[in-house]
Design a protein around this nucleic acid. Sequence first.
DNA 1: AGAATGCTTCGATGAGGAACGAACTATGCG
DNA 2: CGCATAGTTCGTTCCTCATCGAAGCATTCT
Lengths: 224, 224
Amino acid sequence: MREGPDIARIASLVGDPARANMLSALMGGTALTASELALEAGVSLPTASSHLSKLMEGGLLTLASQGRHRYYGLAGPQVAGMIEAITGVAASVGPQRVRPGPRDAAMRVARVCYDHLAGEQAVAMLDRLIDKKLLLREDKEIRLAPAAASHFAAIGISVDARPRRPVCRACLDWSVRRSHLAGTLGAAILDKILAEKWARREKDSRAVVFSPAGRQAFEKVFLA
Amino acid sequence: MREGPDIARIASLVGDPARANMLSALMGGTALTASELALEAGVSLPTASSHLSKLMEGGLLTLASQGRHRYYGLAGPQVAGMIEAITGVAASVGPQRVRPGPRDAAMRVARVCYDHLAGEQAVAMLDRLIDKKLLLREDKEIRLAPAAASHFAAIGISVDARPRRPVCRACLDWSVRRSHLAGTLGAAILDKILAEKWARREKDSRAVVFSPAGRQAFEKVFLA
DNA sequence: AGAATGCTTCGATGAGGAACGAACTATGCG
DNA sequence: CGCATAGTTCGTTCCTCATCGAAGCATTCT
């Protein structure tokens, strides 16, 4: 028998279809109410409530009560990273989807991963930032290069000097199978993309769709 | 309802305690036989076989048949990364599970791990054996040095020349977070410790408690 | 206050699946 | 060959856990 962290307990929490759907929905980064999650998972409200309390007990979710609304969200980046990792395995070994629908294609190009951008665009961006020596890949870690602070400040992104969580983190992309940028910097860049209206979030999906002009602007700033 | 990779299917594979134990055991990187995995997981051979075929069907394992032995291993780095991610979440969420009581303190010092010794004592022992160049750490593998056979024979431990299972294996210690020695050699050493009455097993626990004299003897032989 | 909404708890039902023993197949040994 | 070891398959038993309806709290609206 093995000792150590109870990985089966965590995995079995994700291993139920209803709960997995809820967690996937929460990967969008926005907290959702119990009713919304019930709808998302395709179960009744009592069932959803039961699942949510299990996820809470397991430490995978956070809860913010506001009046009669109770907003559930992912407990943190570590949980989000785990979900992405599982998604990656599921995507590469899973029963190959017969037809990758239009939405799936959009997802592959760009999507929200908890609070930052993922997909081909995001992977390309990280590659380019490392190419331009603004970020340094060290083993599996990513660090800011000296030139980074001023460069991002010029774009309008301030890099927190004393962050509560890492500024840069590598997050494995399930569709491209290579890392993209997470951490506060990754989150700030996504914020900018949406604030500048270079792209909009697809309704009820994690997909992020760039407008033609937005894509040009994005490429000029991050892929030049 | 969500669409996309079937993450629940993958997670539920990991979500069974027996399968989780098997996967954890395989995180060492060395392929193991069905019987070894049955022991690791603490289930009967038929049960283990059933689990293994499910993991195979799920694409999480690879199989290498050699004669009547069937060696199961993790399917790849992506799968290993996923297990690691889940373990990370479990570890950061898990500590709330049990408060370190007196027995847990003893467990941290020395305990039985399947058939060999684990805990601080075991980690220190492996370090010392490598220091003395009796064992060679090669990447994640551990091998016998030429001098090993005669050295262990002098202590009264015969190293099987043609073992049914690996003589040396690295086993990650959950309390120290570093490797200790598993495999037939690890098992033989534990046998000796108990046979010499240097230590006894705590009733209904994996803890191994050394007597004062026993500890001295152990340290003289293995930590000198 | 009363009604409406959002969510949780309770209780009963049902299905999936984890477990093992026994029997069967396959490989190796003498 | 016969015997031993390594694994799988089969059939049965059993128990967990997901599910939903109904009822119970809590909060807000009017």
